[in-house]
C-alpha cells in the first residue's frame, strides 16, 4: 500500500464521518412517519400513537408496519431478503426503513415547524 492509497482511504473516511455528523445533526425526535409505496405516498401516521399499518399490493407484496414506543419497525414482510424486518427501528427525523423488493419506504419526518421558513416581507 502506497502513501496516496492511505490518503485516499482517509479522504473517504472523512466524507463518511461528515455525513454521519450531518445526518445526526439534522435528526430530532418526535415526528410522524410516511410510508411510500412504489414512490407514491401510501399512508402517514404520528410516531407517538401505537398503530399497525399493513402495506399490500396486487402483486402479493406485503409489509406489516408497527408504530410503538415512539419508533417504527417492520414486523412482518413477505419479501425474499427480509432486510426491512431486520432493520433497526427508526425514530429520528430522516431515518428510514426500506424494502427494495416490495418498493416500500418508511420515512420518519419531523413535525416541528422550521423556524427559518418565512424570514421577512
Amino acid at each position: 500500500m502506497k502513501k496516496l492509497d492511505v490518503i485516499l482511504i482517509a479522504f473517504f473516511l472523512l466524507i463518511a464521518m461528515v455525513l454521519i455528523l450531518w445526518i445526526n445533526a439534522s435528526s430530532n425526535e418526535a415526528g410522524e412517519i410516511i410510508i411510500y409505496k412504489d414512490g407514491q405516498e401510501f399512508a402517514s401516521a404520528p410516531l407517538n400513537v401505537e398503530k399497525t399499518v399493513i402495506v399490500e399490493d396486487q402483486n402479493g407484496g406485503r409489509n406489516v408496519v408497527r408504530i410503538e414506543n415512539g419508533q417504527v419497525q417492520v414486523i412482518e414482510a413477505n419479501c425474499k431478503d427480509q432486510i426491512c424486518v431486520h432493520s433497526r427501528p427508526a425514530k429520528k427525523n430522516g431515518q428510514a426503513i426500506i424494502c427494495l423488493p416490495n418498493k416500500v419506504v418508511i420515512e420518519v419526518r419531523s413535525t416541528k415547524i422550521n423556524e427559518i421558513d418565512g424570514v421577512s416581507e
Binding site: 482511504i9 414512490g39 430522516g94 431515518q95 428510514a96 427494495l100 420515512e107
Partner: peptide
C-alpha cells in the same frame, strides 16, 4: 439508483455505512 427507483432521498441515510464498507 435506489433514490431514483424509490423516488426518495431518504436512502442517503445509508451512505456513510456504505462508504465505510466500500472501503
Amino acid at each position: 439508483a435506489a433514490a431514483f427507483v424509490l423516488r426518495t432521498s431518504s436512502v442517503f441515510v445509508y451512505s456513510p455505512v456504505l462508504i465505510i464498507t466500500g472501503i
